[in-house]
């Protein structure tokens, strides 16, 4: 008798599972798939959604808010930001010469944004960041500044930088002099190789 009860109970369990799957099969309205690239236009990401960092521009002056203080560089756990700065002769303030963002190393942790006291850095939700090679992920964030155009030849090799060495190349020097003629100083990520 026991075996019959067991068989029946087993059968009931199997059938109820089948009922469940058939229930979903019969109700196509329950489908939850989102057809991603097609629904790109209607895609809604939460405000806070963070995928990468970006510099904030001042709407009035058209300049980046960043004053190249280097706090974000210090805050970053993964040395994902490299920063060189110069003094703007007009405003007598420091400005980033090149704000290099190593997205390939970035943890998207948001610590840099938190560290920035000047409302110069933000997280964006632009998540389509795939690239063919890690080099493509290195980006100059202040790319609108005329002196920081797409020249990436001298970046990306400084995983263990020497603090005393100036990393200026001749081409870049002339570039800078043309535009600004100001002195420059490099802020490098701090060296965290174990002592």
């Amino acid at each position: 008798m026991n075996i019959f009860v067991k068989t029946l109970r087993g059968l009931k369990g199997l059938l109820s599972g089948m009922g469940l799957t058939f229930g979903y099969f019969a109700r196509p309205s329950k489908v939850i798939t989102q057809q991603y690239p097609e629904n790109r236009n209607t895609l809604k990401l939460p405000e806070r959604s963070q995928a990468r960092i970006d510099l904030i521009k001042n709407a009035e002056t058209g300049r980046y808010n960043c004053i190249a203080c280097g706090l974000c560089v210090k805050a970053c756990p993964n040395n994902s930001i490299e920063l060189t700065k110069f003094k703007d002769p007009e405003t007598k303030k420091f400005r980033p010469e090149k704000f290099v963002y190593h997205f390939e190393r970035c943890l998207v942790c948001g610590l840099c944004v938190e560290a920035c006291k000047f409302d110069a850095l933000r997280m964006t939700s632009e998540f389509e960041t795939a690239a063919w090679s890690p080099d493509d992920l290195v980006e100059i964030l202040n790319k609108d500044d005329p002196w920081a155009h797409d020249d990436k030849s001298d970046i990306g090799q400084q995983t263990a930088p020497d603090k005393n060495e100036q990393t200026a190349s001749p081409a870049r020097d002339t570039d800078r002099q043309e535009h600004t003629g100001a002195e420059e100083k490099t802020i490098q990520p701090k060296d965290r190789s174990p002592k």
Binding site: L45, P46, R48, S49, Q50, L107, V108, C109, G110, L111, M123
Partner: peptide, 15 residues
């Protein structure tokens, strides 16, 4: 994950 994303901005490694 949606709840996490709304508050923390990230879905998996929230920090």
């Amino acid at each position: 994950n949606d709840i996490f994303e709304k508050t923390c901005g990230v879905r998996l490694t929230m920090n």
